[in-house]
């Protein structure tokens, strides 16, 4: 596999704000590469430097073999771009936007097909200003995919979309990847990053804090599996002590949560259930919780809200 984007020590400063502080990574051809991070982490700044829309203050970039600041013809004709914030003229109709943008590219895909894949058929004659937020978002995704480009940038892929649309768009993005295209996307939905991305970069305060396949990140950084249940009767004597041998125990009223030590999940569940039955303890709502990317994210970036 060859790398299609190289970012070396990228830096971007706005006045006193260091938006991107020494970020380096590579994106391989044919992968879906995700960037996640709290608000203001520097994702949009990074992606827009790669798109040639912002000028870096330091480091070097190479996209499709060229420096985005220098050669913008190669970049413009071989990338599809969805900006985090964008607009079309209020009175431009959906089909007109697709038709117009098709005329800019030599190998544009048939936009009629995209219209139905994105559920916009009923809206083809609706002016841009009259679309709902999610419909606008879908139109912009269509405009990004339309050129059938080698590389697609999607900044906040499914923000504002309902679950149906989100699933449809995940399929669409996977389709695009299966045609050998590369996708660089950002998202605030950890489930989306986990399901869709081949690799995920976690960015915080303009720095890269972790980068790997979602499963690997979870394995390395996700923490323990948990088993939670509600007690129906009072706790037998010594029950808590016995539980504590299995893992960390938290008790809130009748809710009990056990976070496993080094157990495999199956083992932990087995042990907990065996303990419950041997001590004849009545329980309900037993659930197991696997660590996920959200746990990794919160662990790496903290729980404090950003300005």
């Amino acid at each position: 596999m060859k790398s299609i984007i190289q970012v070396n020590h990228l830096r971007k400063v706005y006045g006193k704000t260091v938006a991107v502080d020494d970020i380096s990574f590579e994106v391989q051809e044919g992968e879906i590469f995700g960037m996640v991070g709290p608000n203001g982490a520097g994702k949009t700044t990074t992606i827009e430097c790669l798109e040639g829309l912002r000028q870096p203050d330091g480091g070097s970039l190479c996209v499709l073999g060229v420096d985005p600041q220098k050669d913008d013809t190669i970049l413009r004709s071989n990338t599809g771009i969805q900006l985090q914030q964008s607009n079309l003229p209020d009175r431009m109709k959906v089909w007109e936007a697709l038709d117009l943008y098709s005329s800019f590219y030599t190998h544009a895909v048939n936009w009629e097909g995209l219209l139905s894949q994105l559920g916009l058929e009923d809206k083809r004659n609706t002016p841009f200003a009259k679309l709902s937020g999610g419909q606008k978002q879908r139109l912009f995704i269509a405009l990004a995919i339309l050129p059938d480009p080698k590389l697609v940038f999607l900044d906040e892929l499914t923000t504002g979309l309902d679950p149906q649309a989100r699933h449809a768009i995940w399929d669409l993005v996977k389709d695009v990847r299966s045609k050998g295209k590369t996708i660089l996307m950002t998202t605030h939905f950890m489930e989306e990053a986990e399901r869709l991305c081949d690799r995920v970069a976690i960015i915080d305060h303009g720095r890269l804090v972790a980068l790997d396949e979602p499963a690997a990140l979870i394995r390395k950084l996700g923490g323990k599996e948990r088993v939670a249940f509600n007690l129906e009767s009072s706790m037998p004597a010594d029950f808590e002590k016995a539980l504590a041998r299995l893992g960390l125990v938290e008790i809130e009223g009748e809710r009990v949560i056990v976070s496993g030590n080094d157990h495999h999940q199956a083992e932990l569940v087995g042990e907990v259930v065996r303990l419950l039955t041997t001590t004849n303890t009545r329980f309900r709502d037993l659930r197991t919780e696997e660590p996920n990317l959200e746990d990794v994210f919160l662990k790496m970036t903290g729980r404090a809200m950003r300005e």
């Binding site: 798109e51 829309l53 013809t73 413009r76 004709s77 990338t79 771009i81 900006l83 914030q85 964008s86 607009n87 079309l88 003229p89 943008y101 800019f104 590219y105 405009l143 050129p147």
Partner: peptide, 16 residues
Amino acid sequence: SNRENGVLRRLRTTPV
């Protein structure tokens, strides 16, 4: 207004 709304910016990302 096209500049203010980002319409021009979006157009600039295309080969036109």
